[in-house]
Design a protein around this nucleic acid. Structure first.
Length: 507
RNA sequence: GGGCAAGUGGCGAAGUGGUAACGCUGCGGACUGCAAAUCCGCCAUGCACCGGUUCGAAUCCGGUCUUGCCCUCCA
């Protein structure tokens, strides 16, 4: 099945055919860096990261560009509050951005251009627009004349009259038309400013994306993405500038927009103040859980933030992770080796797995339906669990070979969604103290014999405790074995007794 | 006021003409020393409401109600 993408420009799903056969060029509007990113920002990041990952999975070479708006009114305002240079503040939050985005497994773009590094090119575009007569100067500012660009409104699907009808825009008297927007702003004293033919000033917000996307991807690139709130005016204006300047269309071929994260069914936004910072959420929830949550709904639908929904996401995700761990446990680090004949049941199982992989791909091919793709993963997981946990399960070479392949499939599909568990299963040092207390308590009560002195490394100490517990169980001393299990549970280590021995995992 | 979406079980969420996926929760069972994990089964005669088209509609058409988003910086 071929990939279908909903294009905001045409308001329908279209077959996705990139301009060059094997390459996809995509541009996504990045953050204005004056604060930590919130969950709404994260949704856009994760959605487009997932789209990118899937395109890569499909075999495309993806050239991915995401900008930083590192100069604008808000940065200046914030810098004033913080008594900091605006450009320093922007730089600082770019660093913070990467900490969060990396944690969320958002792959870095091939290019992360910044507005302030492209002032010269932006001035060139303004100059060109003035020469073509679609821009004009007024009071030191340069404006784009919306009436001179016939295609204005094609992305947001509105006519100029409709936009004006109920416009809440404060009309700037210097504008010839209320809908005209600023290309170049004259600097006020004390603001960061760059020299231009029109005096000192700085670029308008929309300009940078028109300039930088074309610079790095070429005019007529494949995908332009961002949140739905950017459709108007930001993306509408980008199109107007870029196409008026070039004298051609389209500036970008497919426009993809994600829906909002809501809180109590209201849009989460900086201006409403109802936002949750990713940095804080990461204290409570593993990054994979946040990602799972963000992908549990189709990217164009609203997604309501509640603790209940996040908790459900955690449980659901754990299910997938358990299956992956089960596969890894059974196959070890083995690679697929030439195998003998598969039993009939094993062959049926393998075919079922392949069918689930196809379901996953069909779901993603249908406008990146991650919710449906996850359903395919859950079905696949259930079948894997059932196959491995059967009572008569044996690992013949042929079955092992199959399971290694299944593991690889499962992992690569998880990877498309960025859901491969990132945290290693090694115990961090912060478990050392808690484990030690458990061991000491066991010793002092005379309940168990433990090595003297107690091992320092948490992993070694845990192994010693598990050994004691296994011995206790062998002797049917369930009071002791349950005591150990309960104590470990309290510090977040969960024990499971399986036919292949005890397994532990972190909450 | 104008434009655009959406309303599916206790919750989340797929599903655009053929009789309601998937996850969480709950209940029953299997497995277990007991658990956990896992597996099996059950849980919407109905998809905001009212009409219509059709052999057949959550899905198409008309109307009504409700909610959200955009029209202002915002992912």
């Amino acid at each position: 099945m071929s990939l279908k993408v909903y294009n905001t420009l045409t308001k329908q799903k279209e077959e996705f055919v990139p301009a060059s056969t094997h390459q996809v060029r995509m541009y996504v509007c990045g953050p204005t860096t004056y604060n930590y990113i919130h969950l709404g920002n994260a949704r856009a990041l994760v959605v487009f990261d997932t789209i990118r990952r899937y395109l890569m999975y499909k075999g495309y070479r993806v050239c991915y560009v995401q900008n930083f708006t590192d100069i604008d009114d808000k940065i200046i305002a914030r810098a004033q509050e913080e008594q900091e240079e605006p450009l320093d503040l922007a730089e600082r939050y770019i660093k913070e951005y990467f900490r969060d985005a990396d944690a969320l497994r958002v792959l870095r773009a091939n290019v992360h251009p910044r507005a302030t590094e492209h002032i010269g090119e932006m001035i060139e575009m303004v100059r060109g627009l003035l020469e073509k007569g679609v821009a004009y100067e007024a009071g030191g500012d340069i404006y784009f004349s919306v009436r001179r660009f016939p295609g204005y409104g094609k992305l947001s699907g509105r006519t100029l009259e409709e936009m004006l009808a109920g416009a809440r825009v404060e009309v700037d008297r210097r504008k010839r038309d209320p809908l005209d927007f600023v290309l170049w702003k004259a600097a006020k004293p004390g603001e960061p400013a760059w020299d231009s033919p029109w005096g000192k000033g700085r670029p308008g917000w929309h300009l940078e994306c028109s300039v930088m996307s074309v610079k790095y991807l070429g005019f007529g690139f494949d995908i332009h993405g961002g949140g739905s709130d950017l459709i108007f005016p930001h993306h509408e204006n980008e199109i107007a500038q870029a196409e008026a300047f070039k004298g051609e269309e389209p500036f970008a071929r497919y426009w993809i927009h994600n829906g909002f994260v809501t809180v109590n069914d209201e849009k989460m936004s900086k201006s409403l103040g109802n936002f949750f910072i990713v940095r804080d959420l990461l204290q409570e929830w593993p990054p994979e859980v946040l990602r799972f949550f963000l992908l549990s709904t189709h990217y164009r639908s609203p997604l309501d933030y509640t603790l209940e929904n996040l908790a459900a996401a955690r449980k659901s995700y754990t299910r997938l992770r358990n299956t992956l761990e089960l596969l890894e446990e059974v196959t070890g680090s083995q690679e697929a080796v030439p195998a003998g004949r598969l039993s009939r049941e094993a062959a049926a199982f393998r075919d079922q797995v392949l069918a689930r992989v196809a379901e996953f791909e069909d779901a993603m091919d249908d406008d990146f339906n991650t919710a449906l793709a996850l359903a395919a993963l859950f079905n696949l997981g259930r079948e894997v669990n059932g196959f491995i946990n059967r009572e008569d399960f044996k690992t013949t070479p042929a079955i092992r070979h199959t399971l290694v392949r299944v593991r690889r499939y499962f992992k690569s599909l998880l990877d498309v969604l960025g859901l491969v568990p990132g945290e290693s299963r090694e115990l961090r040092m912060d478990y050392a103290q808690a484990l030690r207390e458990i061991a000491v308590s066991l010793k002092e009560s005379g309940a168990a014999q433990l090595p003297e002195p107690l091992p320092e490394a948490p992993q070694v100490l845990l192994d010693a405790l598990l050994k004691v517990r296994q011995e206790a169980r062998a002797q049917k001393n369930y009071r002791l074995s349950d005591r150990i299990r309960d104590s470990l549970k309290k510090i977040g280590i969960i024990l499971e007794d399986t036919p292949r021995g005890v397994r532990w995992r972190l909450v």
